[in-house]
């Protein structure tokens, strides 16, 4: 059966040939991914594979779904964000909601959105009266220079919104 004895049977030749063919085919199959075609992983959703470009209409729709046609309150949120962010991977922002954290005068949820990101929702924060002040600082990712929107939904049903524009020199992948 070995090559030294030079006993080539039909079966042994097929064995080696099949192994060779499988190896070359697998290499060719891997070469296909180099073109950058979408490859779907087991845990990947449809949204992840194909909607990588930002969609401004969906961002508007998300904001509209949060506000639901209510009137906006002025000067409710203080949003601190840098004017120019060199690295889009970590943009430090912080906000504080101006209110006395007593009954019905506290923010139930605060949404943070970046409108030009492919996934505009970034974080939601849920507060209770026992968290003495609605003041949070966090680091976010931004793809391009765009508006950061903070929307606060108060416990009594009123809504406030602030926006601030950030210039990003090197964008992040998010």
């Amino acid at each position: 059966m070995s090559l030294n004895n030079k006993n080539f049977t039909r079966r042994s030749v097929f064995k080696y040939l099949s192994g060779f063919i499988v190896l070359t085919c697998s290499k060719l199959a891997n070469a296909e991914f180099k073109a950058g075609q979408p490859f779907r992983d087991r845990f990947q959703t449809y949204r992840q594979t194909f909607r990588i470009e930002p969609d401004p209409e969906e961002a508007k729709r998300i904001v509209k779904n949060i506000i639901k046609g209510r009137e906006l309150r002025d000067n409710l949120i203080d949003l601190k964000a840098p004017d120019i962010a060199e690295n889009g991977n970590t943009v430090p922002i912080s906000f504080s909601v101006k209110c006395s954290m007593k009954d019905n005068d506290f923010p139930k949820t605060v949404h943070i959105l970046v409108l030009d990101n492919p996934f505009p929702e970034i974080a939601k924060f849920y507060f209770t009266p026992s968290s003495g002040e609605a003041n949070v600082s966090i680091r976010i990712r931004m793809r391009t220079s765009s508006n950061i929107v903070a929307i606060a939904e108060m416990a009594d049903g009123t809504v406030g919104e602030t926006r601030s524009y950030v210039d990003v020199t090197i964008g992040a992948c998010s």
Binding site: E121, I138, S174
Partner: peptide, 26 residues
């Protein structure tokens, strides 16, 4: 044992996420 603060994050939060928030000392 009492929940005072909750936050939900999506993919826009940066790597090695840092967050700071407030609490009233009683």
């Amino acid at each position: 044992g009492e929940l005072i603060y909750r936050s939900q994050w999506f993919s826009g939060v940066s790597a090695n996420p840092f967050m700071s928030f407030k609490m009233k000392a009683v």
